[in-house]
Design a protein around this nucleic acid. Structure first.
Lengths: 202, 202
DNA sequence: AGTGTACTTGACCGGTCGGTTAAGTCAAGT
DNA sequence: ACTTGACTTAACCGACCGGTCAAGTACACT
């Protein structure tokens, strides 16, 4: 049993790293297996297909996020507006660390996968969409609190939250293309300037 | 001669469409050839490798852009701020049209390629980076005019221009993941709210 | 001791990948 | 008329792809 869960976990974390640093299509099962010191047959014992592996990787990382720095960033003890800065900082330090080690910016796994697979796999697309929805709702909640506390003027919290998530992904995309994590630091804070007004209720 | 340039052009436009609608890794040379009604050998007569094809595709599309709707959007006859709206609208209608025909949102070819290949091919990454730089400088020029005319308060035009480009890419990424072009319409206009202040010159 | 099951092994499958090659077509230049 | 060289054709290459399989090993339960 324990040998099994360990093997599965090793596959999962190896795949996650490889998918993140390269891409879904570019990393083969054989490579994942040899990097995780696992045989092909064992792989297919745990995952029916490469696609199912991708699903599991997304779930795995989404869960790590939810309980990791995203949970910290959106800690309700923090003043709402500071949480946005915290998110940007977290993104920066993460990318910076990877860049220092690997020499390349991996970007956001979800964003990478989304652009790569969402035109050819409906199920994966929907899953990634759900991840984004969840992230967006964190922003939304933060904005609602900020409005309630009077820190910012009332606005369309849902749309603005989506805009902020989009901006974060866009900044990471640009930084990755420049291969320069500092872009995140320079452009990131402007996330707070984004505003989408409430639709006039006339 | 003419037969040659026609064949080359057919390869180029076919590859562009396939890369855009799917991805670089997912589309093989064989598929490109059969779709373009060209033989493999002819392909390799014009392009030394798949990667060189990608380069040519990027150049091709960048040029089309520069002389197409981007030129219109950033027409100096338009008031600066309206140009931003024009860009967003253009992005929307383009994605919308593709979505209506194919049922899927292809997103931005440059953004797609950037996330897919920039961790494994330095040269392609640099090329895509240059495309983004050029796009960003269009935004920058627009912002400078807007500041000069007093339409908006002074700001760090270069950084804000990059932020706007990042936002546009992010919005398209999110819309593609949702497979819903309307996201562009809903979030896009907020591009005008983005601001990065000048660094305090103290 | 015997059995069921979770797990591992490594050879194997058909198919496709990017890329090569050799033989030819054809039109322009001389 | 003959040569040149751009272009096309289709068979072919080794490598690798995702995925399968039969044969085992190791361990829990009876």
């Amino acid at each position: 049993m324990n040998a099994g869960t360990d093997t599965k976990h090793r596959i999962l974390s190896t795949a996650r790293e490889l998918f993140h640093n390269r891409s879904y299509a570019d990393v083969g099962i054989k490579e994942i297996c040899s990097a995780a010191r696992v045989q092909k047959g064992s792989f297919y014992h745990f995952f029916p297909s490469k696609r199912d592996l991708a699903m599991a990787v997304i779930d795995d990382m989404a869960e790590d996020w939810a309980h990791g720095f995203v949970a910290e960033a959106f800690d309700r003890n923090l003043p709402p507006v500071e949480r946005l800065d915290y998110m940007v900082d977290a993104a920066y330090y993460w990318q910076k660390a990877a860049h220092d080690i690997e020499g390349r910016m991996p970007g956001c796994l979800f964003g990478n996968l989304a652009l790569e697979v969402s035109t050819r796999d409906e199920v994966l697309r929907a899953k990634l969409n759900a991840v984004f929805d969840k992230a967006s709702s964190r922003f939304e909640q933060t904005l609602e609190e900020a409005v309630e506390s009077g820190a910012i003027a009332p606005l369309d919290t849902q749309a603005t939250a989506q805009a902020m998530l989009a901006y974060l992904e866009g900044v990471i995309l640009l930084a990755k293309t420049r291969n320069d994590p500092d872009v995140v630091l320079r452009l990131g804070p402007a996330i707070k300037t984004l505003r989408i007004e409430r639709r006039t209720p006339n």
